[in-house]
Design a protein around this nucleic acid. Structure first.
Length: 455
RNA sequence: GUGGCUAUAGCUCAGUUGGUUAGAGCGCCGGAUUGUGGUUCCGGAGGCCGUGGGUUCAAAUCCCAUUAGCCACCCCA
């Protein structure tokens, strides 16, 4: 028999991890709800046709396809088999696939339920997504996204509120030194237009996105490789030197893009959002405009967001942006939306790396009753019923094993208090309460137990 | 998809130019302690040396194949 294992890029979560993960999800959920978002869920699998063509050619390759049930071979594309064309074949043997993100299923959901939803519609969704990517540091094949989106509103106030949500969530989670990076797809379009290379927009954005990683020279080399001419690269030059704070960058961008209508619009949008956010003030977020931020997804049309943590072991922990016509491909035109996504797994990795999980995020049971025998146990159960009704997380050791073993159980499980009720305690109706951290023991009545543990 | 590295106890790893019974730390179990965990001391269990083949009197060690994992590139959350 072979050793059991799980697929690469997937993980089991033990009790300790789950308590911490739930704390992250709960924090995120609570902020989303405070901003008026409502929850939805969609199926893990979608029709393959719903997902294909939405994430670019590269993205399509990473979608996990589900093999048809039944006699799929009989219905398979014989030509594709003969030609050895696996990509073509896959569409004849697979009709369903695992969702790749939460935004496209959301777009489908909005189109299907358009008459039943309030406008604008503000939803949040916390579910796993799957990508057939090569796993690595901070990179999984199954991971959770926590999305908030607003559809049916063009107002830039939404962008402002999303920046506030970044700030609220990440501050509540005590993420240190995080930067909310801001750009606008219209600025990128303007840049390409001014360089007289509008049809090369994607190539340009993919290349300059790497600026902070590989440096100016290599970016230029990549631009050349992607077929950008010398003249066009010269026209892109001002991009490489932009710095000196958000206002300065905005001013430089504005003058660089005066001849581009769309670019100017993008700069105005950026300016509106950044000035609004600065007027209201943030708790701990550092907001930065970066005209080289591109992000891979093809459907963004306006604002683009990304959150990075200084000295982080993983890449970006959040992303998002505005899309003018996401629902268009499903038949509902002119519905603009804007949204952001929190990568819960990467947030976990960051908190773990900096050792920042609060202590209470590791505690499940608050109080354990040691078990000394039948008569003592009966009293424990009575007290437990009362304590649990008050909301205390408490349990009794299920058998009267050696105390040694019971104490070890409490210690292993990180239970902060143990109540000892032996024959003497039972006779006097006094409970011995042990504080597992200090080792200190006190005697008290059942009535005082709750406050002693919670105090 | 390309290149490099690794695979030995539950985990992290030692293991000499090939040589007798493959070790350590941590963890686990038991005892010191049948009313006290964590700390300390003592003891114990746990291994087809990733898998298949080859060289050799002899292989964890050398060679070939295979599988899995790690790092870099590419791409991305």
């Amino acid at each position: 028999m072979s050793k059991p294992s799980i697929p690469k890029g997937t993980r089991d979560f033990g009790p300790k991890e789950m308590v911490r993960r739930n704390w992250i999800f709960q924090t995120i959920r609570s902020v989303f709800e405070r901003f008026g978002f409502e929850p939805i869920e969609t199926p893990a699998m979608e029709n393959l046709a719903t997902l294909t063509g939405k994430y670019g050619e590269e993205g399509d390759q990473l979608i996990f396809k589900i093999l048809n049930n039944g006699d799929f071979l009989n219905k398979a594309d014989k030509d594709a088999i003969a030609e050895g064309d696996s990509k073509k074949l896959s569409f004849s043997i697979s009709k369903k696939a695992l969702r790749y993100d939460l935004t496209v299923p959301f777009a489908r959901f909005v189109v299907m339920n358009q008459h039943a939803l309030p406008r604008p519609f503000k939803r949040y969704q916390i579910q796993p997504v799957w990508r057939g990517d090569r796993p690595g540091k901070g990179r999984y094949q199954e991971f959770f996204q926590c999305d908030v989106d607003i559809v049916g509103s063009n107002s830039l106030l939404n962008e402002v509120e999303l920046v506030q949500i970044f700030d609220e969530v990440l501050s509540d989670l005590q993420i240190p030194n995080f930067n909310v990076v801001l750009n606008n797809r219209k600025v990128l379009a303007g840049i390409a237009e001014v360089a007289n290379a509008s049809e090369k927009l994607t190539d340009i954005t993919v290349a300059i996105d790497k600026l902070d990683k590989i440096g100016e020279e290599k970016v230029k080399q990549e631009l050349v490789n992607r077929g950008i001419t010398e003249d066009q690269i010269t026209a892109l030059q001002p991009l490489f030197g932009m710095d000196g704070g958000n206002q300065a960058v905005l001013n430089q961008l504005a003058s660089h893009l005066t001849d581009s209508e769309i670019g100017t619009k993008g700069v105005e949008e950026l300016r509106y959002v950044i000035e609004y956010v600065e007027r209201i003030g943030l708790r701990s977020a550092n907001v930065k405009i970066d005209p080289t931020l591109a992000r891979g997804l093809t459907y963004y049309t306006g604002a683009i967001f990304e959150v990075k943590v200084d000295d982080s072991p993983v890449g970006s922990i959040c992303g998002g942006g505005r899309y003018d016509d996401l629902t268009g491909i499903f038949g509902l035109k002119g519905m603009s939306g804007v949204g952001i996504s929190f990568g819960a797994d990467r947030i976990y990795d960051v908190l773990e790396h900096f050792n920042l999980f609060p202590k209470e995020a590791g505690i499940s049971t608050e109080l354990l009753f040691a078990n000394f025998g039948e008569a003592e146990e009966h009293w424990c159960m009575e007290i437990l019923k009362d304590l649990r009704s008050q909301g205390l997380r408490a349990e009794v050791y299920p058998e009267s094993s050696k105390l040694n073993k019971q104490m070890k159980y409490a210690n292993d499980k990180g239970i902060p208090f143990v109540a000892l009720i032996g024959s003497e305690e039972l006779a006097n109706k006094q409970i011995t309460l042990k504080n597992m951290q200090s080792g200190e023991q006190t005697k008290l009545s059942a009535h005082d137990l709750f406050n002693a543990v919670r105090g």
